[in-house]
């Protein structure tokens, strides 16, 4: 995926975050906002197909990603979530 490759590049040159050590007990905590009809259904399908993927992702179901609000994303980061994605 192009956007991931791009992002990877971004990470290398990123000056946004101060360098830090990663504690040994840390595991990524990722929240996904998923549209009920698209991404949530796709996640269902991934399960039905028994596709194995990272257990670090937890889903919050939305009726539609159009419902997604800034406040949801910001609040997630504020609480210490490591990453957020929306899928619809």
């Amino acid at each position: 995926m192009a956007d991931v490759a791009e992002a990877a590049e971004q990470i290398l040159v990123s000056t946004v975050e101060a360098p830090h050590d990663t504690p040994a007990d840390w595991t990524p905590n990722v929240l996904a906002f998923a549209c009920h009809y698209c991404a949530f259904a796709a996640a269902d399908l991934a399960g039905v197909m028994r596709l194995s993927y990272s257990p670090s992702v937890k889903i919050i179901r939305l009726p539609c990603t159009g419902k997604l609000d800034h406040i949801h994303i910001l609040s997630a980061f504020e609480k210490g979530v490591d990453g957020v994605f929306a899928a619809g």
Partner: peptide, 11 residues
């Protein structure tokens, strides 16, 4: 949902 989005994909 702890089946489609959990047990089935983290076997």
């Amino acid at each position: 949902d702890i089946r489609e989005q959990c047990s089935w994909c983290h076997k």
